[in-house]
Design a protein around this nucleic acid. Sequence first.
DNA 1: TATTAGCACTCATTTAAGGGGAGTGCTAAC
DNA 2: GTTAGCACTCCCCTTAAATGAGTGCTAATA
Lengths: 343, 343
Amino acid sequence: MELDERKKKILQAVIRNYLETGEPVGSRTISKYTDLNLSSATIRNEMADLEEMGYIFQPHTSAGRIPSDKGYRLYVDAMMEEKEREVVEMRDMLVERQDKMETLLKQMARVLAQNTQYATMISAPQTKRSKLKFIQLSRVDAGQILAVIVIQGNVIKNNILSVEEELDDETLLKLNILLNTYLNGLSIDEINLAMIAVMKQQAGIHSAIVSEVIDAVAEAIRAEEDLEIYTSGTNNIFRYPELADQQKASELINTFEEKQLLGELLQEAHAQGEETGIQVYIGAETQVQSMKDCSVVTATYELGGGMKGTIGIVGPKRMDYDKVVGTLRAIQTQLDELYGKKG
Amino acid sequence: MELDERKKKILQAVIRNYLETGEPVGSRTISKYTDLNLSSATIRNEMADLEEMGYIFQPHTSAGRIPSDKGYRLYVDAMMEEKEREVVEMRDMLVERQDKMETLLKQMARVLAQNTQYATMISAPQTKRSKLKFIQLSRVDAGQILAVIVIQGNVIKNNILSVEEELDDETLLKLNILLNTYLNGLSIDEINLAMIAVMKQQAGIHSAIVSEVIDAVAEAIRAEEDLEIYTSGTNNIFRYPELADQQKASELINTFEEKQLLGELLQEAHAQGEETGIQVYIGAETQVQSMKDCSVVTATYELGGGMKGTIGIVGPKRMDYDKVVGTLRAIQTQLDELYGKKG
DNA sequence: TATTAGCACTCATTTAAGGGGAGTGCTAAC
DNA sequence: GTTAGCACTCCCCTTAAATGAGTGCTAATA
């Protein structure tokens, strides 16, 4: 069967209406809602066709129609009209360059949740490709060394090392110079075994310390890699009856609190969303069991220096895709303007 | 009317039973449940008295009795028998001294939630009384100075300062020595204006930088003071039907996500719980609107060096007070053993 | 041939009524 | 002071009927 222009219009009308109301939509509603000037009977025939093609279905006999995942997919891929939204508050929020990335991300999650009325999550930028900017060892206590590692974009990692031997100031200074000379400006991938060997040799009797520091750097990176995720607006799911029953809500909230699965989801989105950076997952497409009745829209963002992260918005399948995609795209643009090129 | 021994026993039985089942408890149940060997009729008379005194009430005519807030209060204050619980996993978890306090606290919240099946929250230690251990300024970039501030207990704060003038290594070293000489070992309260004036004088032409650094320290402290809170097991509230309806659950979850109110709650608990450090809030006693159907048990803990924080457990009014208080006390003891005296 | 009006039918949801049961208060007997 | 017995209350569950939105199908229409 062919999906002609009229069927498309009707499908679109069904989806639009369902997005608004969340109720199954009947033929009479469409008959009045559209400018097609067709009677409900005609609509009924068309809807029967659309059902046969798998774009819509009835939750039970003699109920109106609901879009299927396939229907949503077509809508998102082909029928959506992105609305350009006001993201003024966001601009204000982002305009001041933040030293504390954490604060920025938390706030961003919060504003997004408020703006969209869905649940939001943001993964902190990954530092894999980022360049090491600065390493500093300092003696804090007898036997305790503080290692500060600064990464491009001012992401800072601290680590306290316990050392057996006493280190005098001079040695510490030497080690600092050694480490910075070799490691400065490198991305984390670029640090290799050969380099470590040379450094150890140069450190002489203190090679053990070099090992410890390298371990600490590796540790700091690893800590960064089980990535931080900020969420907001979790309780917005109660706005949508189809998600608000105890079973589903409990599972969803648990998913949002544990964050483990969110991380995997965002990373996959990050990996896939190469082109425009915006990705829409409908229902079971997410692979996260507790989100099978949700849709997720993700956007990757860039903060310069190769630091990329991902924003995700989770709502019911009947989420306002137009608005969400529009908002995310606006944020992407603004982040790009503010941070993207400068590094 | 007098609350004699028998009435107490009956009240206790009512509460115990209600804690278990969550259902109103009737006279016949008590008649069998207790070792008083009284008929249900007698129990009925006694229960009528207890109701008149305000310890229990009927949700509707011809239903069993439910403890009132006053009843719970009496129970917690006078009738509870703390159970010594196995907190073995906790011991294992806590036994390794953590460099990262954050990790420790997160894990602690998680284990507690799992153990008790309630929602938990932990406030990070407050550093107000803690002593400054170490300050280090380093040049990261032209015009960017990294200030690292280490506080007793290895809480580390970073701050990036932008400076107008160029600073050479020597000047930086001098400033480092100056700052550490004056500020090291002081608690944050002890830093005063006179001291700052002296430091500025000694810094000479670089007094502006000293100002900036002091500001940064103040800033770091302020950041620490809007205290970090870790939560876990929020979704446990769905286990208790009396909290699981949409309205209440949504509000509670919002409270847990926003954390603002939790902070106030924990701080109040911290302020009040001077003696044993364990505090029980029943129903409206918490002052947090969304928790009016909950009870909250808090415990302050100490990690040495004046660093104190608060743990809170939130559950239904019929929470297992004995178990919760026992568990919290056990944790207090263990933390004290492991961290308390050493600093 | 495409569209429409009409009608019988389906089924979720709402409303009402009735029965069961848990638990109480009261009274009278022990 | 305690207990057995009984009438009474009221929640809650089940069942039945009424409601109504929406469909599929058929026959008439343009």
